[in-house]
Structures are given as structure tokens and as C-alpha cells.
Write a protein that binds this DNA or RNA. Structure first.
Lengths: 232, 232
DNA sequence: TCAAAAGTGTTCAAGATACACCCATGA
DNA sequence: TCATGGGTGTATCTTGAACACTTTTGA
């Protein structure tokens, strides 16, 4: 075993960071959580939330830790997006960064934006310039979100546990950046038979009120095991 | 700037490796290029081809270098798949690995398999156990290939520049692991209008001979820019 | 002449799209 | 009573799936 370590030792080591593309949904808009960088270089410029991987910590663990330190949120939907390893991507030294994207439920939306880290939600339709390759990461994250949302029920991660049809539709419209026909949308979603309709209404956005639904995780898993394919 | 380096310095560094899932297509079968590991631990067990990232070298460059050193091939289709960063994934020490998948054209198939590194092509339908998390990587690579092949014309990367319809269909059957109807397959492919039919035939597999086609890269790019979506 | 692979069209079913009006409610 | 957003059904078109026979040619 000592010979192997010998072997590995010939090779260089690198700082490894995780950067998170954190999406939220509010006011009918898809938003991204960013902050102003606290140290040089590029101090004061917009940046994703990131941090260095520590000893004994996996990449996933590092990503979850960084998100937790920032927002206090745990058990958030997170998925690796892509690694960024250009030798000169960080002017302050070589850092290999693994980008993750995360979906924050609407319920937790406000608090996350009010954290002590100066986090700010910005609309994905109007993104400011960001440091280094963070803009590239976000673009890639958006593309991935679009594709994933069409083929897997991850949209629900961006909504509260109980939501209305108009809310759900508005979310998909924000992700796809296009308007959908509400009759066809309902038909499609309900045909998949993964929603539970509650007998309560949400009256916060209309006098009539809209029925609340819940996503049926168990039913969904059964369908998937039976070879079912979620598609919107 | 020295303060930043100071800042980075507080954080640990890691060995970073690339591991390549190398697919080839031959005899109607989708195959994977692997070799027997040359050093402890797990010496002599099946392993993907990998290597450590070097100073001044990006991840993509490292992946291409490793593939070149192994097969002598350049300009091969390669794409990052996923990073693997469990703290204990390598028993000989902490290594963060970035998995890539590569598609080797049929033409280069044989030479790659005959390299001095003892490379061996194995059918993806009958994979041997592999070291560490390499089996997991391959599974993920296969899933990705399936999805990509359905939505982007990457299948052509696995064929020679000129190919016949039966060959192309056989490739898709190998990727999807299911049989396709040849009339429907032709209809779909030809309807996309990205193939150039040549007036020559390949007679190596039948007396009648099958017409050769080429993939029309330019036409495809135009279609994509026009919002077209490749789908098989 | 015949074996073996290449090539070709049509029918049917399902899913996607387009589209317009009534309902419930609080102010 | 009326303004606002929620809710519903049908007709048409497009797309995918199923399916069988003829052609070419070298041995």
C-alpha cells in the first residue's frame, strides 16, 4: 500500500471548490440566488455561492454544507451539473470547481434571501454579469433545468408542498419561458395521475380561489418502477 | 492578491483524476474499452482508463491526453459525465475523479483495442466487475448515451464517415437494447433530412449491397440554429 | 434458382394542439 | 353587479406504431 501512495504522490494536488446555482420561484418568476463577493480578486462583484471542499468530505457533502451555511436549509434538491477545470479560470490560483444546481421550495424562499451573507434573488431573465465562469455555469444550469423539468417531476421542488394549478402552470411557464394553454396543461398533468387534489382552496390570488394539490411521491415512484415516463 | 492566496491556502488540496468510459461499436454490439490495473491496490482487476490531472492542464485536456496516450486517437467525441468525490472511494488515498465518456469511431476501433496498454473491448451486455466505483460510472455513462443518442446525433460518432442504413439501425438497437422496425426507422431518419445518400453501395454484408450515407454536419447545424430538435 | 439482406407504403391509434365560454366570489 | 381569476370539452392535426411483400445479386 505504501508503494501506491508513493505513486499518487508524484502527481499534483488542487484546491477543489463547489459552486451552487440556486434557483427559486416567486411572483411568477424564476430566480437565482447570488451575492457580492467578499474578497479579492473581483471583490464586490456578483458571484454564485461556493466554498472549498474539505478533508473527509465528499463533493455532495460540501455542496450541501455550503448551502446550509448560507441559507440554513437542509434536504434541498441538489444535483451535480458539471465540473469546471480550466487552468486559468480563477486568477488567484488554480481551483477546480464542481457546479451544482439546487432548487429551493417557495416556502423557504424569503428567509434564504434574507441571510446574513447578503444573498440576493435576481430574475433569470435579467442576470447581471458574474465573476469568472459563473455566468457560463448559470446558463448551463438553466438549460439543464429546462430539460429536467420536462422529463422529471422536479418542478415540484420549487413549490410549497401544497400548490394550485395556476401556480404550477406559472412555474412551468417561467422555466420554459413560454406561455402554455391552461386546458391542455391541466389535462396533461392530471392524466399523469401523480397529484392529489385536496378539498381546500387557496384564495390568496383570486376571489373564487383555486383548489390545492399535493404531489404524490409514492404513486410517482410506483409509476416509474412500472416503466412510466413523466413528460410535460 | 497575496491575501487571496493566503485565503485559499487555508484549504486542503486533492489529487484529481479523470476516468474515461470509452464506447465503441462493432459486430452489432456496443462495447467498452477497459484494461487490467497495473498497480496496487486491486492490481490485475478491471478498470477504466484514467490518469491524474497535471499542473496547467484543464480537465478536458487531461481526459483527451489520457485517451491519446492510450489509443493514439485525437479529436474524439468526449464529454464530461459526472464527478465522483466520496472521501473513501479510493482505498489508497483521497482522489476526486471526473468521469468522461468517449465515442470511438468504428474505423479506429481495432487499433485502439490493440494498444500496448492491454486494452480490451468488452460487450456492455456482459460487463465484468470493475474496481472502486467504475461500475457505477459505466452505468451512468450508458444511461447518458441512451438519452443523448435519442436527442442529439452523437450516434454517428460511433460509425465510420460513410455507413449504411442497416448499420445505423443496428447501432441504435445496440444503444437502446431493443429492436426497431426498419421501415419506421428509415422514415424517421430520412425525414430529418440530415443524411446525404451516396450513389455507392457497401456490399460487405449482403449480395444486394446497401447504399452508403454520410451525415451532413452543415445541414444539421443550420437546422439546429433554426430551432430544430433531433429526435429518434 | 434460391438464400439472404435491402428496400419500400399504408392503415390505425394515440397524443398534441387549438380554441371560447361559464363559474364563483368579494368588493 | 361586475371585475377577476378559476375551471372545463371538443374537433382537428400530427406523430408514432404496426405490419408484409418485392428487389437484387452472388454462389
Amino acid at each position: 500500500m505504501s508503494t501506491d501512495k508513493q505513486f499518487y504522490k508524484e502527481h499534483p494536488t488542487f484546491h477543489v471548490a463547489v459552486d451552487s446555482i440556486i434557483f427559486g420561484f416567486d411572483q411568477g418568476e424564476l430566480k437565482l440566488l447570488i451575492h457580492k463577493r467578499k474578497f479579492e480578486p473581483a471583490k464586490g462583484e456578483w458571484s454564485l455561492f461556493g466554498g472549498f471542499v474539505q478533508q473527509g468530505e465528499s463533493l455532495d457533502e460540501a455542496a450541501n454544507r455550503v448551502l446550509f451555511e448560507l441559507t440554513g436549509l437542509e434536504k434541498i434538491y441538489m444535483e451535480e451539473l458539471q465540473s469546471y477545470g480550466e487552468a486559468d479560470r480563477d486568477p488567484a490560483g488554480r481551483v477546480i470547481s464542481v457546479a451544482y444546481y439546487a432548487l429551493i421550495p417557495a416556502k423557504e424562499f424569503i428567509e434564504a434571501g434574507n441571510s446574513k451573507y447578503g444573498a440576493t434573488w435576481v430574475s433569470v431573465k435579467d442576470l447581471p454579469p458574474m465573476i469568472m465562469d459563473h455566468g457560463v455555469m448559470v446558463k448551463k444550469g438553466l438549460r439543464r433545468l429546462k430539460r429536467r423539468a420536462a422529463s422529471q417531476p422536479i418542478g415540484f421542488e420549487l413549490l410549497p408542498g401544497e400548490f394550485t394549478m395556476p401556480q404550477l402552470q406559472s412555474l412551468y411557464e417561467a422555466i420554459y419561458q413560454e406561455e402554455l394553454d391552461k386546458r391542455n396543461f391541466r389535462k396533461k398533468i392530471l392524466a399523469m395521475d401523480v397529484l392529489i387534489k385536496l378539498d381546500r382552496k387557496d384564495k390568496s390570488s383570486s376571489r373564487k380561489g383555486a383548489f390545492l394539490y399535493r404531489f404524490d411521491q409514492k404513486k410517482y415512484k410506483k409509476l416509474v418502477n412500472g416503466g412510466y415516463n413523466f413528460t410535460i
